[in-house]
Amino acid sequence: MKGIEEQIRATSSQLLAAGDVQLVIGYGAGSDNSKTMPVFIKRAEDVGKLVFNPLCVSNLANYLLHWNNFEGKIAIVVKGCDSRSIIRLLQDKQIEREKIVVLGVNCPGQLKSGQAEAKIPVEAVLSEATVDNGGIKLQTSGGLITFSLEEGLLEKCRQCESSRPVVSDYLFGEKGFEADKAALQFNDVAALEGAPLEEKSRYWDKYFERCLRCYACRNSCPACSCRECVFDMVEPDWVAKTVNLSDNTAFHMIRAFHVAGRCTDCGECERVCPAEIPLRILNRKIIKDIKELFGAPMPGSDLEALPALSFYAVNDPESQN
């Protein structure tokens, strides 16, 4: 993966030096070597801060919303899953294509944060990483650290639809991770769908009960682009600020429905949730339903295909009634 990292640095350096972009949003080393963090590079001489490895779990696309008043052009590093957010933001006209340079990475797969923290010492500097069928191998200053795919690979990577970015101006990396087709069948959602109502209710209650309403799921979401969010409004107070099972459930239902048809299953909401609520199941249930009802592909996988819930067709069977 060193090659990808070097290419990202070289391209970023060229783009910044030539004035083709004024900002690069990418990944940098974290305070602890089991983590990376988003970095914002404005000068070519700082590109050495950019890294790429299996710890680049976050989706940076949300930052394009933070920077949408930025006058210059922005280059952004995206993995296959993250690239769908770019398409979605373009479709929603939240960003302009000509102001964005997409540094796409054929993603080899990403490591679970918990596993990374359990095995990678704070001071162990990563020098090289590989992901293949043999597992995830990290060469560090503290020695070789290995994870089997079973223990180490993120759930969302196992279910990856396309490790190759669906949009990119530059593409780095030879070949990304290829998920087992069987893993793409929404088996996790189907398992819960089949459970009796009481069991489903118990399942969600135990999670919603401990929701802190910190809004990290919303704030990290590239689909959450409203300037004024219903959850912040006080007049009228659509959803009470009180934290209890009832209001928390309302919060999560509204959030999931609000991003329905626009959620690309990037998994940021679940990744950032401090209460470890399996939010992807909720989102994927809706994605699955839309797929089954409208034959719609994963949102964000095709720039030309408008999301099923966001356009109107005169020949829609329902419009005939």
Binding site: P38, V39, A240, P274
Partner: peptide
């Protein structure tokens, strides 16, 4: 400002901080 670039503006740090004590008051 440099530090704030990556902040998502969520409430995780403050809610989990044992010394944070900010609160809101609302009527229902």
């Amino acid at each position: 400002e440099d530090l704030s670039y990556r902040c998502l503006g969520c409430g995780i740090c403050t809610y989990l901080c044992p010394t944070c004590h900010c609160f809101d008051i609302n009527d229902y």
